[in-house]
Nucleic acid binder design. Structure first.
Lengths: 210, 210
DNA sequence: ACAAGGAATGAATAATGATTCACTTTTATG
DNA sequence: CATAAAAGTGAATCATTATTCATTCCTTGT
């Protein structure tokens, strides 16, 4: 015998793998999944195309993981908002705002995660991700019902509606309409938009106007 | 001179064109846009592949039109619900139910229109289509505000939220999960689901529980 | 019947990108 | 250093489909 995988090597491999993931994520942030080809990822990571296949069995595998990672971050943030102090309603409002704010800050990323057409395997991740959001909201809603600050309702359904309303409202503003990296057009109404979403959603939950 | 396009020919051409559209739609209804290749459309329409290009400049053109047609039908239905007699609220409820019912009746079609990943040109049609729905709802909401049965609100935002909540709630049930043409699993909760959506949406609009 | 356009055909081509694989380089061990 | 085992390489291959175009087939008007 002559070669055994050593700790150092294991580490180096892990680093390369991570670099691939990072570069893939970068590309998605810059131009969505559509513009993130395997060869581009390789170039960005300064490795050969073939090397990527030593770390991932297929492109979809790689990008599913990219999606998962990006997503986890976002879900965590919303989860944190929901875990803070305050009434359930306040926390839900905070979470909705958090979601919207983060999306509007990284429009391309948000669009890629929320609405860009993607391969089946990645789309599957998207469903999971939306469900993860919904489940966070769902739990908060249940809490609210227990505390009595939310009326009895189907928590699953309500949380799904929340996610949908949020996503749909953001798709318009986020959509990378051909050749306009125009900052000015949206900036001003962002606040109004978010307020409108929050109002609708909270009313949908509470059945109570302001 | 010897050949001039005659009425008969014009008609025949129109028929072929229509047949292409019909067959393309059929294919989408059966397997979504993904399974609707140009060659398949040709085969189904019993013409040569090349013939399709005498009627449409490109695949995306064809399918954009398919999308538009399918969509128009749906939007019209919802529009009709909103135009019937009754209070604004009743009509909005009717429209929401109409939308959901039609979607659940033709799951593949609905999924293709609402959530399937599609080419950019078709995606553009999707945005238009969602906007068309939103505009119908928007108008009803304005009416409601004028009549005083809806509190003041941003009609655009509210209508967008409606569409989003509806779409998101349906995506789960509609998603063609690999290899399950299972009827039983959803059938029973359909009614519950729709009721939940309607409740959330109407509350979101009115700020009033039942 | 015939000539002059169009219309239709479908095999060949193009385009895009993922994936492979024969070969080179690197790493670990006796 | 020699050798075994991986890891890395990237040009070539494969796969999938849209699109083209040289050719054939049909209409139409004389």
């Amino acid at each position: 015998m002559a070669y055994r995988e050593t700790e150092k090597m294991r580490l180096r491999k892990a680093e390369t793998r991570q670099r691939i993931l990072d570069c893939a994520l970068q590309l998605v942030m810059e131009g969505g999944f559509r513009n993130a080809q395997v060869s581009q990822v390789a170039r960005r990571a300064e490795i050969a195309t073939g090397t990527i296949y030593r770390h991932f069995t297929a492109k979809e595998e790689l990008f599913a993981e990219v999606f998962r990672t990006a997503t986890r971050r976002e879900v965590t943030k919303v989860g944190e908002s929901l875990a803070e102090a305050g009434s359930v309603i306040e926390r839900l409002e905070q979470a909705l705002r958090q979601f919207a704010a983060r999306a509007l800050n990284r429009p391309m990323m948000a669009w890629a995660l929320i609405a860009e057409p993607v391969d089946p395997k990645v789309e599957a991740e998207r469903l999971t991700y939306r469900k993860a959001y919904a489940e966070l909201f769902e739990q908060a809603i249940r809490e609210g019902m227990n505390e009595g600050c939310l009326p009895p309702q189907d928590a699953v359904c309500s949380s799904t509606c929340l996610v949908g309303a949020l996503a749909e409202s953001l798709v318009g503003p986020l959509s990378p309409v051909q050749g306009s990296t125009d900052e000015t057009s949206h900036t001003s109404n962002t606040e109004t938009l978010v307020n409108g979403i929050v109002r609708f959603c909270l009313q949908g939950l509470t059945g109570t106007g302001r």
